[in-house]
Write a protein that binds this DNA or RNA. Structure first.
Length: 908
DNA sequence: CTCTAGACTTGAAGTTAATCCC
DNA sequence: GGGATTAACTTCAAGTCTAGAG
């Protein structure tokens, strides 16, 4: 490869610059914006709660959490509207757009009394959760989700194919309808997230709301209004000069320094383009899958753009909101970039970057691949600090000391309270100490001196001047620079995790049987490198050692891997970064598949509804499991080994994880992925309820609820309903549909921060549905009480002002301040102004508290990164003139480059 | 079919950089 | 100006799902 050389050089230097040109407008916003963001967020929160009702894709709405947790906060309980039994919609005070309330009152449905939702006892824990989340005792929360229901009798097993292709909008419309269509019976769910700790939190169950129009509401939107040029604009930008100049390598991730704004887009495009465009194979060489189904061959754009037929969207018009003034231009915001012909440049082979579909299994993933391998952590530097054993100093060899230090460093973590952790650590450390070592048991060890040394080191580091820190950073960057990039089919792409994991103690989540075990140091001869055939093999960075193996496998995307030292049968891979086109391509395919599901969902729902009462128990289990996955967005639930934490997913639910409560409520309580607790109460169709009761009968609490089912059977069945369909697609579908509908329903225009708040609210609903939790920060309660103190102070001040005001009106001087000092005399007007200002401040802090409490256990990021089709967000930003930087940070902009030039009219 | 190796996505926690707030 | 908060970014564990062997 001649190229290489060329490339190299350019890469680094030139690249960035080139890229730069690409940029486009978006500009300014960024920095500043952030600020606003924050503020807006707060608000959201508040608004958030109000929103309560979300409808799930299915059409039902649900209220998200109704209950509010807030313990401390003053007002809280009372205040929160949501709590109310009813679901929702209206509850909110302010909030939601009028439109929202349009919905029919939930209650309508017959069955479960509305009250039911409330019903759940206050204390959640009702159900004994078998396992609680380990560390934080409290940690878990319950959540509930809302749900929808489905029904519809249709049967056709195979789903009918709906409109199939992604692009077509048509599908969209259908879906919508689908939702609406189904209806029935109802159930809905509620969800809430609350910390367990909080006593009363629970969710309540809601009933289903009638389908009604809601569905339609959701859809809505976007009217056709603008068409925008967005694309056009977008497209144009970029590349220019660079092209001519440097031909060969394009870069995909943003270079560190460069300005993001620009780059991403541009890049994106490239990525996108490439990807889309060609079905890779072109290269004659590769056989490529013919099958491939199509990749949409061509047109990249198509998807984005036209996909959506307007017709669909229109449905309802949502009222007001839509009107947004801006209609006209919308687009601009997002800029897209395009480079004109980026592709052209590439003519060379490199250029091709084709993206193949990763998905296509057989497929070739790349044609040429160059990279520098991985970087190893520095060797251990003994500190010489001695620990104590039975009160006496102990000498340790560097190797023994290294492991002791790993443990000492964790002295203040929750792992110290876990017997398993200590036992595993002791077993491994003991091997290093040797049988005859003076240290004979962990209990008599005192690691404090090492711990304190470590704390001092940390402090030292913290105290370094900013210049020193900067110098260190640059030094590190310099060392790592070459490892950060790979050249895939002539395009410079960022590498994800090029650093080999340093040795340490295994930190498993939940009650992991292997926690505390020593994760030994990985050496070059543990590592297998994957690189293009003609590319130079990365030099082994450690003198005297060599790679375990070098492969040239173009059917995989990993650059290197090694066996996991904790579980030698598993691997640790080095992949390209999320901003790479290879990843972007597969990300896009993921969303396209989920969109395709929209077209099939109606048929799928009617099929499983029909099977709830099938005489074939396997069919019945598949039907119920599919229903739960569809309705609750549960994970598939693969089997797990005994040497892993005991967590479950849908197919592995145990009898004790699902409690039926007549007439039709199911109470879920189990530990899911990462040992995060899932608690929810959901009203389900009667046939489902009965089926669950039947599955449970005659079994013990720890027995499998779905004893005739596993994920491969379930997925095999799903594939019959829609090509490529698997359980996880429902999660993506559910999340993206919810976002799309919520945005359509709630967005009403207004100030930028209000729009951002709406988005965050929608994002939150999705996070709740997916049960994306985060642990409550250690300082949470402190922060809340600080805010409360502030409120108290302000209130005291307010009282003083009021007194002074009354006196001022009578011509009397103000009373003395709390500090005993005399205040200066103010006019009544001035005092009134102060009173007003203080009230505003108080309200602002109260909102802040509410938001904080509300989001303390909800993680919004995970869904944004993994489940929400970025095109929904981009299109919404274009429609409502919200700078995309408000919604996506730099990393997300790079990751979603492929989605930036979507049409404003796009709907999921 | 079942079992398992393999590959890749998803996820919360940890760390660091950027802002906020006094 | 500097500590406290937040948001961004990193880390690596823990899932999902596929393909191939037996």
């Amino acid at each position: 490869m001649a190229v290489e050389a060329f490339a190299k050089k350019n890469l680094m230097d030139d690249m960035d610059e080139d890229d730069m040109p690409l940029v486009f407008k978006r500009s300014s916003t960024t920095s500043k914006q952030n600020q606003s963001n924050q503020s807006s967020q707060k608000q959201d929160a508040r608004s958030v709660r109000q929103v309560s009702d979300v409808r799930s894709p299915n059409g039902q709405s649900s209220s998200a959490h109704k209950v509010k947790t807030a313990p401390s906060s003053r007002e809280s309980p009372a205040v929160s509207p949501f709590t109310g039994p009813k679901v929702s919609p209206s509850s909110g005070r302010t909030s939601p757009a009028p439109s929202s309330r349009t919905f029919p009152a939930p209650s309508s449905r017959k069955s479960p009394a509305p009250s039911s939702r409330t019903s759940p006892a206050p204390n959640s824990r009702t159900s004994p959760a078998p396992n609680s989340r380990p560390s934080s005792s409290v940690g878990n929360q319950a959540k509930n989700v809302n749900q929808r229901l489905n029904i519809a009798p249709k049967e056709s097993k195979q789903a009918v194919e709906p409109k199939s292709e992604p692009n077509d909008d048509a599908e969209d419309s259908e879906d919508d309808k689908i939702l609406s269509a189904r209806i029935p019976s109802g159930l809905s769910k509620s969800n809430s997230i609350h910390a367990n700790k909080v006593p009363g939190t629970w969710a309540s169950v809601q009933k289903a709301r009638p389908p009604k129009k809601e569905d339609s509401d959701d859809e809505i939107l976007l009217a056709s209004r603008f068409q925008m040029k967005s694309n056009a604009g977008a497209s144009t930008s970029k590349l220019s000069n660079s092209e001519e100049v440097k031909p060969k390598i394009r870069q995909n991730g943003l270079p560190s320094t460069t300005v993001l704004s620009k780059r991403p887009l541009g890049e994106v495009k490239s990525a996108a383009q490439t990807s889309v465009k060609k079905p890779r194979l072109s290269d004659a060489s590769t056989p490529v899958s013919s099958k491939q189904t199509s990749v949409k061959t061509e047109k990249k754009t198509e998807d984005d753009e036209d996909d959506v037929p307007i017709s669909q969207r229109i449905k309802k018009a949502v009222a007001s909101t839509s009107k947004v003034p801006s209609a006209k231009k919308t687009t601009k915001v997002v800029s897209s970039s395009m480079k004109k012909s980026k592709k052209k440049l590439k003519n060379s082979k490199y250029s091709k970057s084709s993206k193949l579909q990763p998905s296509s299994g057989d497929g070739q993933k790349w044609t040429t691949l160059e990279h520098s391998g991985v970087i190893f952590p520095p060797p251990y530097k003994p500190h010489g600090v001695k620990m104590l054993y039975k009160g006496k100093l102990v000498d340790l060899t560097p190797e023994q000391e290294e492991v002791a230090t790993m443990y000492a460093v964790m002295l203040e973590t929750d792992y110290m309270s876990k017997q398993q952790f200590k036992e595993n650590f002791w077993n491994d450390w003991r091997k290093i100490l040797g049988k005859n070592h003076v240290i004979q048991n962990l209990g008599d060890c005192d690691f404090t001196p090492i711990y304190e040394w470590h704390q001092r080191e940390k402090e030292k580091k913290k105290q370094m001047s900013s210049e020193e820190k900067k110098a260190l950073r640059e030094e590190k960057l310099k060392q790592e620079e070459k490892y950060m990039w790979a050249i895939v089919d002539g395009v410079k792409e960022k590498v994800g995790n090029f650093r080999v994991e340093p040795p340490g103690l295994f930190r498993g989540r939940g009650e992991h049987p292997k926690m505390g075990k020593l994760k030994r140091r990985i050496r070059p001869n543990d590592i297998t490198i994957n690189i293009g055939k003609g590319a130079p093999i990365p030099e082994c960075p450690i003198p005297g050692q060599r790679w375990k193996e070098v492969r040239h496998d173009d059917t995989v995307t990993w650059l290197a891997f090694w066996n996991d030292p904790i579980n030698p049968r598993e691997f640790k891979y080095v992949f390209l970064a999320a901003s790479s086109s290879l990843k972007g391509q597969s990300d896009k395919e993921k969303y396209e598949k989920a969109r395709r599901l929209k077209g099939y969902i109606e048929g799928i729902r009617s099929a499983y509804t029909k099977d709830f009462t099938s005489s074939d128990p396997v069919k019945r289990q598949i039907a119920v499991a599919t229903y739960l996955i569809d309705k609750l967005a549960l994970r598939a639930g693969n089997e797990k080994d005994d040497d892993e934490a005991d967590t479950v997913g849908c197919c592995t639910l145990k009898v004790e994880n699902v409690q039926p409560v007549p007439p039709n409520i199911l109470k879920f309580d189990f530990l899911g992925k990462d040992s995060i607790r899932y608690q929810n109460e959901v009203a389900v169709y009667e046939p489902v309820f009965k089926a669950i009761q039947k599955f449970r009968s005659g079994k013990k609490g720890g027995d499998d609820l779905f004893d005739k089912l596993d994920t491969s059977k379930l997925n095999a069945h799903l594939k019959e309903l829609m090509p490529g369909l698997t359980a996880k697609v429902f999660r993506t579908y559910n999340a993206s549909v919810t976002l799309d509908q919520q945005l359509s329903k709630l967005t009403q225009g207004g100030e930028l921060h209000e729009k951002v708040a709406v988005y965050n609210l929608a994002n939150k609903e999705v996070a709740i549905i997916c049960n994306h939790q985060r642990s409550v920060s250690k300082s949470h309660s402190v922060q809340i009480s600080k805010l409360n103190e502030k409120i108290d102070e302000l209130k005291a001040l307010l009282e003083e002002f009021k007194v002074d005001l009354a006196r001022a009106k009578k011509g009397k001087p103000p009373v003395k301040g709390a500090d005993g000092k005399t205040k200066r005399t103010l006019t009544s007007e001035a005092l009134q102004k102060k009173i007003d200002q203080t009230n505003v401040k108080i309200e602002s802090i109260e909102r802040q508290i509410e938001t904080k409490e509300d989001l303390k256990t909800v993680a919004l990021g995970t869904s944004k990164i993994n489940y929400l089709d970025p095109r929904i967000t981009v299109a919404w930003c274009k429609r409502h003139e919200v700078p995309i930087e408000k919604m996506f940070n730099k990393s997300l902009l790079a990751k979603f480059a492929w989605a930036m030039d979507v049409e404003p009219t796009f709907t999921f």
